[in-house]
Design a protein around this nucleic acid. Structure first.
Lengths: 193, 193
DNA sequence: ACTGCATAGTGAAGTGCTTCACTATCCACG
DNA sequence: CGTGGATAGTGAAGCACTTCACTATGCAGT
């Protein structure tokens, strides 16, 4: 599957322009922000612009991923389960823990695993030492599926991020994490790596 | 409604750390990227890190907005309809056009407007000059609802973006639009504003 | 041995959206 | 005038997920 296959179905509905500093912005958006009833400060305008750009990028990325997952016979939730299992030790996790990290309800985990098990990508394993526990474990087929998707996902991301320097990528990452800090109250746990 | 009310329900499940350049990153993520079967180049690692940070930010923002809309009795789709109408000339748009810009199916637009009309936020207006056309128009109640939400939304965004300089915000915007360019093939239509 | 709690699973209802197939209306062009 | 194509609406089915209420199992502490 080529990136261009899905790229076509992916639309941006704004008006791209370049400001004096050579930075991209959406002129239509800026206009509609400026025509608010209360005049906004520069900081306010820049904040709304940045956050909106974020949301648009987010929506498009999500759309892309959704369709991509769909073409592999996976829903978003099932994809997340698979990816999480792929990075888990021994490719297995108790269902409850899986529900926690993916932030879905226990009710839903059952359904997701049911579906994945039916497709042969995951199997349920009982824990002999604590018979209340059930693990979801990636099958060989599931592992192959994920490996292929990871390789493809890497390629896509490289194409999407084409043209950005490593420094720009790091700045983007940093900015995102600062937003995340503000949204969640997450705090730095480690220093200097 | 305070921002802190929803912030609590909003979780980041990684391990925040600071690199030598003082930039935030997710040490657990970096480790799991590095432990891929094929060793990745620095550019590849940075790309995946940045894109992942984007996706996390996106997910959180989306969660926040979703809950926020819900508390105002709106689904995501209905919220978008309202916002779009708010910025439309005369606060009205033909249903078909609305479906186009929001990228939802015509079938769904009917349902969205039905719902909003039932709630008294939008009304259907026939076009006397072309009787095939039906406009959706914001009612006074709808306008008030949106105005309140816009003010609140601005506050939230300022809080989420707190601590970022105007320059950083512009860089974030620029980076996002470059990703958008790459994803959609959108091109710059205007120069220098 | 019994109780309390955790874990997994089930069934039913609801939501918000999608697609497909179809009708009714009505403008505009030949 | 008449027809083709655009516009809106409808009904039915399906999907992925949610919540709520409930059962069954089994570990662990008293």
């Amino acid at each position: 599957m080529q990136f261009s296959e899905v790229k076509g179905e992916c639309h941006f509905n704004g008006t791209l322009a370049t400001d004096r500093a050579g930075r991209l912005y959406d002129s239509r958006l800026r206009q509609s922000i400026r025509s608010a009833r209360r005049p906004l400060s520069e900081r306010e305008v820049r904040t709304v612009e940045a956050m909106t750009a974020m949301r648009i990028t987010a929506r498009l990325t999500r759309q892309l991923m959704d369709r991509w997952a769909e073409k592999h016979g996976l829903s978003e939730g099932r994809l997340h389960v698979l990816f999480r299992l792929a990075t888990a030790p021994d490719h297995r996790l108790p269902l409850g823990e899986l529900a926690d990290v993916l932030e879905v309800t226990p009710r839903n985990i059952t359904g997701l695993i049911d579906h994945l098990e039916r497709d042969g990508l995951v199997e349920r394993i009982d824990d002999p030492s604590d018979r209340r526990l059930t693990y979801a474990r990636l099958t060989v087929a599931g592992g192959k599926r994920i490996d292929g998707m990871r390789a493809q996902g890497l390629e896509w991301q490289l194409k999407i991020a084409a043209g950005l320097s490593i420094d720009e990528l790091e700045q983007l990452r940093h900015a995102c994490f600062r937003l995340i800090e503000n949204m969640t109250g997450a705090a730095v746990a480690e220093r200097s790596a």
